[in-house]
Structure formats: structure tokens, C-alpha cells
Design a protein around this nucleic acid. Sequence first.
DNA 1: TATTGACCTCA
DNA 2: GAGGTCAAT
Length: 352
Amino acid sequence: MSSFIPCLSISVLSDSLIQYSSGIIPISTTELNLKQTLLGGQSFRWFEQSPNEFVGVLHFYIVRLQYENEKLHFKFYVHKNTNSLLNECDREKESATILHKYFQLSVKLEDLFEQWCKSDERFRNKQIPTGIRVLDQDPLENLICFICSSNNNVQRITKMIKTLSEIYGKEIGTLNGTTYYQFPTIDELDQSDLEKDLRKLNFGYRARYIHKAVQYLKHTINDPSYFDRLKSSSVQDARSELLKIMGVGRKVADCVLLMSLGKQDVVPVDTHIHSIAVTYYGQRKNSQLSMSNYNNISSFFQQLWQPYAGWAQAAAFSNELRSPTSKTTSVKRSKMTNHCKFIKYEKEIKES
DNA sequence: TATTGACCTCA
DNA sequence: GAGGTCAAT
């Protein structure tokens, strides 16, 4: 079947949709694991069409990605009314640039891995997979997604964000029977009945958080360059700004810092990372994820995995979702060593 | 400063 | 219970 050959696979477009560009980016599997990166829980806007083929929305484009033979094939689609002055070649370049930025391809993952291996034998022993990249996402979208993420699972978050985009975002077009929408802007979300409507859509208590967050950003902050300002602020300053937003606690703030504000060293600590810290790095059992505990775990990993500790976290995290912790000899050994490291680290903290 | 329960919904 | 946050104590 032709579907095995990316360039020849057939697409059915609605009348309103046109193909904008297509191209290829050569990249090795150690630099990019497409599935783990897109579906691993940092973005909630990608759908797997077939093995190694994904469709999602970036800006006002529907984007189709296919990974095969060390190459990332891409096709961009836009609404036909989107006017572009670019010729075919420049559109391809522009699209490649968007992907380059989104996947942060100037970051050399293999080099980072080498660094992490030096300080952490879970990397050295290949217990953590390669190819997981941190995506550079849109801050507003990222923020809303992670407000939705509390007490929630990937599947439902994805569904909620899909619904949110369908209701409030602009339609792009229909590709192979599925209609795609832009993520709504702050103005599109700024509606007096937002909470009520989102509750009807089964957002639960997050409906209020989203409504409050939108009100705050639109009417209290009221600054189009708000997120850009945070990008150029220090981690501490940007974090304390984000914490002012209703529905944003430390974990969500850290996710936004890492995934859309370019703070590559931030390590968000969720229940998975927490349990990784307990299982492999000797954090005390039964310890709740209190604020001081969060700080300890986060800064421990930050020190262990520098630089780009947030990227290491994403890789370690994805592994946790996959494997139900098989306990081989080497794992036990690495548990011990890292346990010692953690104790030592805790001592240093206390003494300083 | 740290701990605890409620919060919505779906599996 | 699920990749948390808020508010009260």
C-alpha cells in the first residue's frame, strides 16, 4: 500500500483547505523519537493516524508528520483564505523553520545524553530512552493545557483541549474526515459564561480556573508581551508571576517554564517524578509532595542532570510511563548508588 | 511553615 | 485514583 511511502500517501482535503508545503528534515532516531515526544504528555494536540504518522495543529496550520528511515516528512495545510506571498520553495523553508523551532532542533540531544550519562547511571545503563525532546510550545495553550492536567489523565486532557479548540478556536479545515481548529486566543476565550460553559463540557472544577486565568491575563495583565517578558525574566521571577494565576501551582508553573518559556533547566515534579525519586534515587518513602519536598526533589534533579535538566526529566518521565519497573541486578545497583547520592545531596542542603 | 480535605469527571 | 490547586487550620 502507498501509505508506507509518506510522500505518496493520499489525503482528502475539504474545499476550504489547501496544502501549504511539504518537505523533509533528516534526523536520527537518537535525536528524535517522534511518538514519545508528541504523545508523551507534554503536548495534548497530536493524534496518531498510523504508526509513526501524526497530525496536529501549529499556529494556523494543520501539520502532518511522518517519521521513516531517519527522516521527518512534513506536510502543512492552511485554510484557503490564508494569504501567503511566499513561493513554494520559501513556504517549505518557512515550514521547516517552524518545526525546527518547535522541536528545538538546534539542541543536540546526543550531546546532552552524553553529559547525563556521566552523572546518572540510569542514563548510562540505557534505562532511559533517547530521542525524547522538549517541545517549544505556545505559552497560552501550554498554560491552559496544564491547568487542565490536575487530577487528570492524558486521554481526557487531550479530549478537553480538543473540545476547547472546537468551541472557541477558528476552524482551519477538514483533513481525511477530521476537522481541525486553531487553539483559541485569549480574546476568543474572554467570555462571561466561560466557566458555566466549560462546566457543561465536563471540565469540572478546572472550568473556574480557566475562566479566572483568562480574566486575569486579559483584564489584569492586559499586555500582549506578557509571556515574552517572562521569557526574558529569571526563572524565579517568571515562576512567581505565573503563580499569581488562579489554577497555577508550582507544578503547572514549572511545566510552563520548561515547555513554553524556554527555561530548560526547570524540573517539574509530578507524582511520576516523585515516585522515580523514591524508587531510584533514594527519596524517603511515604513522603508527601509538600512544598519543601518538591523543592528538594526538583533541585536534586536539576543538579544531577545539568544542563538541560528539564529535558532529562522528560526522558526519565516517558520511561516511567512505559516500563513497570522490572528489577534487574543492574537496576538494583543503580538504585543503591543513586540513593547514596541523594542522601549526600540532602546533607549538603542541610549544611548550607 | 506544614498538613489536610474538597474539588469535577471518568476509568 | 488519575501527571494538582486552593483554602482553611
